[in-house]
Design a binder for these strands. Sequence first.
RNA 1: GUCCCCUUCGUCUAGUGGCCUAGGACACCGGGUUUUCAUCCCGGCAACAGGGGUUCGAAACCCCUAGGGGACGCCA
Length: 493
Amino acid sequence: MNKVRTRIAPSPTGDPHVGTAYIALFNRCFAHQHGGEFVLRIEDTDQQRSTDKSEQDILSSLKWLGLTWDEGPGCEGDFGPYRQSERSDIYSDHIQQLLENGSAFRCFCTPERLDELRAQQMQDKSQPGYDGHCLSLSQSECENKCAADEPHVIRMKIPGSGECEFEDMLRGGVSIAWSQIDMQVLIKSDGMPTYHFANVVDDHLMEISHVIRGEEWINSTPKHILLYQHFGWEAPAFCHMPLLRNPDKSKLSKRKNPTSIRYYEAMGYLPEALLNYLGMMGWTMPSGEEKFSLSEMEASFDISRVSLGGPIFDIEKLDWLNGKYIREELTDEEFTKRFAAWAFAPEKVAQIVPLLKQRVERFSDVASLGGFFIDGSLEISEASFAHKTIDSAQSAKILQFTLWKLEALEQLDRDAVEVELHALAAKFELKIRDFLFPLFVALSGKAVSTSVIESILILGIDIARARIRQAILVLGGISKKQAKALEKEFCNF
RNA sequence: GUCCCCUUCGUCUAGUGGCCUAGGACACCGGGUUUUCAUCCCGGCAACAGGGGUUCGAAACCCCUAGGGGACGCCA
């Protein structure tokens, strides 16, 4: 058997997600269990959404958890570069091969035509997908369009009939009809490869032997297998892990649950506890022991022990485990050190001090005024939101709208938040001080507090989001029906 | 809508045809220890989705039904 090599391939388009860490953990364990290597590759082919900041966040979050990689950015091996945006030449060479051997074709259809096509297919309740329009273009038509610089994409050809059968390491045989598979775009009109194409090319060139990824990819596996065939390459083994779930069983999402690794860091979870918790999602030690370190997991890892039901990410059990780690693994000295490093991180203190200094008369005022910066959840009740003109329903609405605004914000900076909040207050026809009142309470637990905007920035979007959501719940919550109506109103704002 | 995957206590799970009257952990409820609380200890509650096969024997294998989830983008 060839050397085992696995990879995690995050896309730097948002917060570092616990799901990424989850899949990374299993990839790392599998590789190391077999004396192989674990590779990190950045899939930044989406030029619109990829950011350097997100990449940095993902890398540092994985490191924080101890999920270091044997090869990847900052740890160059023989298969670099490890960032897809730096591999353009490789993709253009390879797409040329497919164009030449007839397994891919140029498509000049406009996005408008494709939207229309899809809308029609949806209406007819048929399987949405490309209709093969440009397949019938003659060679000369195609050349003329290219010469005229007409924007186009490159798509892969799909067998007209039959089934794609493949082995999943956990599920056994899976078969999907080729008729279900779309003629996937491989190269976008901006010249960048799509995930499907870059992923296959890179996995092959980086000699990835086992692709361990989320269940959401099962349905596109035939596309990948077909690409390996088009190139004449041997496909790796595939293994699809169950998806982490919200308490309502849907795929874990930030709208329903904190998903950012940063959130768990900011809430004061120990990385080793969070990692251990992720390890017990769908997996158990052969001994049955629930508390285990990364090296223990790697030593006893056995992928066949993965269970297939999608596990619910249960914060209560994580809390228990984290407490267990604090009690059993930290000496008083270590606790002191780690708590201080967490609570009094210099960058954080530097931001908080100016806000507190002007509002305190004695140091002994600091804890009650600034305590909410290190508190986890706040003790608030509906009564905390009592206000002379704003009732509970109105408060909940203000909080919900603010939450949506914050979620929509590309980047969290002072000015942007200020502009948005003022705009919202105006729409509500409220004075900014009245409008901000529920936010003060939601974020700090008190009616009197440091600046809301600064507080959001210091707390971080993840904690702010969680607190606002909690406050809405305390205020009686918002039913699905109400949420729908509100969302409509929000869009019209 | 079409296709794919999944299904054991509320939750995470053990279980690979007889050790199953289904085990452990979280949560919850009792009790003990503790000046309170927490920790810790002891006890309790609680599940094989339903139906049909195969078998001497099914939680486990097969089929059907139901439920849940996912995928169907010039996002990944």
